[in-house]
Design a binder for these strands. Structure first.
Lengths: 345, 345
DNA sequence: GACTCGACTTGGATCGATCCACGACCGTTC
DNA sequence: GAACGGTCGTGGATCGATCCAAGTCGAGTC
C-alpha cells in the first residue's frame, strides 16, 4: 500500500506513467500508439515506466475518444433443446483466436428467436461494437440488408443467396464442391447408384450441396432420377428417407447434406442388419463430433472454418481501416475426411 | 441529410435528447437511470424524444464514467483438432442468454494454451470487463488463485477442488450424484456387475464421478473390485478398457465418466457382435450430441447447464452489486436421460 | 549567424455520460 | 406568511486517452 500515484485499486493512468518516466502525457501516448515518433532511448525509458506500473490504456477512455471499441459482435442462437450447432461453435472458436491476433475481441449476444434483428440495433446505437459477423444465413439473411441500410460494417459467413447484387463482404464454403468431392470419392470406389438426402428445397445451402452431387453423377453419365430425397434436418427423417430409398432405388451409397442425416442413414442400415462401409457407403457433411466417434467412423465433408475465420477477420480489417477497403466475396473449398463408413481400406 | 442535431452518421447524444425534449441533460440522464425521480408527464416527454431520436447511451462514455463495462469475460480454449468441448459450448450459449437478461454481454477471449493466465491480465488492467467466468477447471484452477490476489470479481463453474478454503463464488454440478443416478438406474434394471470407466486419478472431477458409482454399488452391498478402469478421455482408450473389462470382469453394464468413453464401449461391443441395451447396458456422461444420435441412443447424465448459467449470473450480480454480496458455492443435481443403450422399454 | 529539423513540452479541448452543488419554482402545510 | 419537499435547471467537474496547435531546445546545415 504505497502512496505512489498508482495506488492499489486504481489502475495506473497515462499521466502516472508520464510522471514516472519524466516525460509528458503526449510522449507516453506516442510511445504507445506511434513508437516511431520517439527517440530510441526515450521509448526505452517510457516502456520501462509502463512495465513497472503495469500500465495498459483504459479501454473505455480510448473507445470514447477514438470512437472504436475493438469489439466484434456475433449473434448466436439462443440455447434450445437439440438445436446445438457444433459447426457454429467451431467457427466461434476460430473467430476468437483469429480476432485476437488482429487486436479484436468477440462479443457474443443473442436475441428473441423470432426476430432476426434483435440485439443488433442496441449494440450498434450504443456503439458497443465496431462490426458484426453474421452467420445464420440458412434461409437468407435479413440482417445483411438491414445492416447495410444502417451502414454498419459487417462480414457474412455465408453467401448472399437471395441478393446477388449485395455489396457486403462475405466468406463462404463451397458446399457443392464438397458434395462433388464426396460423390466422386464413392464413384472412385466403384459405386454407381449413389443416393442424395438433403434439405427442403427453399434452403439455398441445401440446394447448393445437392447440385454438387448431381454434377458429379452427371459428369460420369449416371442418372440421378429417383435417387434424391429432401427432408428436415433430423436423424428421424434421415432414417425414413434412407429406408424409402433403400426399398425403391436400391442405392449402394448415400451422400448426405449433413452428419445428422447421415446418422439417420446409419440407423436405417442397422435396422436391416446392414453394415455401413461394408454393405452400403455413407458420407455426411460437417465432420462433427458424431462423425468422428460413431463406429466405423463417418466419412464427412469438412469445412475449413479456421480459414473462414481468417478470411472473415481479413475482410473486417479492411472494412475498419482508414479509408475502408471493400473486399469481394471469398469462396473456400472444403475437404473430405475419409473414415470407415465409405468403405474399407 | 438534415441539419438537426442528430445527423446521419453520428448517433444522437444525451444533449440532443435534452434539447428536443426541452429539458436539461440531467433530467434525461435521470429519465434513463432513475426514472422514479421524474414526474410522470416529464418522463413521458423525455421518453418520446428518446424514441424519436433512437437514442441509446454511448457505451464508452458511460463505461468511462461509471467504471463498469457490463461485460463478462470468459476464456475459451483455442480451437484445436479434436478438442471440441460441446459441454462448454452449451454452457456459453446459456450464459449468453442469461447474462443478456441481467444486462450483461459476454466477451470471449483465448490465449496461449500453456499459459492458463494469458488474456486475463490484459482485460483486467485495461478495465475491459467487469468480471470473469472461469470454467476450465479440469485439473484445478490457477486462474482462481491469481484472480483472487488481483481482487478481480469472478465466478467459477467448477468447485475449487484443490483449495477447499477458497472464498470465491462457484457453481458446479454434482457429478457423484449423477453417476449414482446412472448406476442406480442400471441396478434397478437388474444389473449387478456394473463396471466403471473413468479418468486418470489426478482428475478431481473424474474421481468425484467415480465415487458416485462406488457409493451406489456399496449401498446395495455389491463389490467393485476389478470393475474399475481409469484411462485417458478418448474413444480408443474407452474401447480398450471395455475390452479388457469384458474379458476379465464380465460386467453386464458400464457407467462411464464421459460420452466419449461410452462411445469406446459401444465400439468394443460392436466388435464382439454385442448389442448395447440388449446384451450390455451402457451409460455415458454429458448428454452430448453423440449420445442423442448414436443408435440405439446413449443413456447419459445431463448437466443442467441452463441452471448453472443462471446461478453463475446470480453470483456475478452479487459480486458487482454495491455493496458486493458474497455468495457461497452452489451445487446442482444433474439428471439422467434414458435411451436405448441402458436397456429396452 | 540564420535556418531547418527532429524530439519533445505545454496547455488546452474533446469524446459523451454522469456526478455534484446550488438555486428556482411549485403547491402544501402549519 | 413562512417553512418545506418534490421537481427540475444551471454550470460546472470528472472519468482517461487522444487530438491539436504552438512553442522550446539542442544539434546540425549552409
Amino acid at each position: 500500500m504505497s502512496s505512489s500515484p498508482g495506488r492499489a485499486g486504481t489502475p495506473p493512468t497515462l499521466a502516472d506513467v508520464a510522471e514516472l518516466a519524466g516525460v509528458s502525457r503526449q510522449t507516453v501516448s506516442n510511445a504507445v500508439n506511434n513508437p516511431d515518433l520517439l527517440r530510441a532511448d526515450t521509448l526505452e525509458r517510457v516502456q520501462q515506466a509502463i512495465d513497472e506500473l503495469g500500465y495498459l490504456p483504459n479501454r473505455a477512455a480510448r473507445n470514447l475518444r477514438t470512437r472504436a471499441s475493438h469489439l466484434i459482435g456475433m449473434r448466436i442462437k439462443p440455447a434450445q433443446e437439440g438445436t446445438a450447432n457444433a459447426t457454429m461453435d467451431r467457427f466461434v472458436h476460430s473467430l476468437v483466436d483469429t480476432s485476437r491476433e488482429a487486436g479484436y475481441h468477440v462479443l457474443l449476444f443473442s436475441g428473441e428467436l423470432d426476430d432476426p434483428l434483435a440485439g443488433y440495433d442496441d449494440l450498434l446505437r450504443s456503439t458497443a461494437v465496431d462490426a458484426f459477423v453474421i452467420s445464420d444465413t440458412f434461409l437468407g439473411n435479413p440482417q445483411a440488408a438491414w445492416l447495410e441500410t444502417k451502414r454498419a460494417p459487417f462480414v457474412a459467413f455465408g453467401r448472399p443467396w437471395d441478393n446477388p447484387v449485395a455489396r457486403h463482404p462475405w466468406v463462404d464454403v463451397d458446399g457443392a464442391a464438397g458434395c462433388e468431392l464426396a460423390t466422386n470419392h464413392l464413384l472412385d470406389r466403384g459405386h454407381e447408384r449413389i443416393a442424395w438426402i438433403g434439405w427442403r428445397k427453399d434452403s439455398f445451402i441445401g440446394e447448393d450441396r445437392r447440385a454438387g452431387w448431381a454434377r458429379a453423377m452427371r459428369t460420369r453419365g449416371l442418372s440421378t432420377t429417383g435417387l434424391a430425397s429432401r427432408v428436415e434436418d433430423t436423424v428421424a427423417s434421415g432414417r425414413e428417407a434412407a429406408t424409402v430409398l433403400l426399398d425403391e432405388a436400391r442405392p449402394s451409397g448415400f451422400v448426405c447434406a449433413s452428419d445428422t442425416l447421415a446418422m439417420g442413414v446409419l440407423h436405417a442400415l442397422s435396422e436391416r442388419g446392414l453394415l455401413p462401409g461394408r454393405d452400403i457407403a455413407v458420407v455426411g457433411f460437417d465432420d462433427s463430433q458424431v462423425a468422428q466417434v460413431v463406429p466405423p467412423g463417418l466419412t464427412s465433408v469438412r469445412q475449413p472454418l479456421e480459414d473462414v475465420a481468417i478470411e472473415t477477420v481479413k475482410a473486417l480489417e479492411g472494412l475498419l481501416a482508414h479509408p475502408p477497403t471493400a473486399s469481394a466475396g471469398v469462396l473456400l473449398k472444403p475437404s473430405l475426411v475419409v473414415r470407415g463408413s465409405s468403405g474399407p481400406e
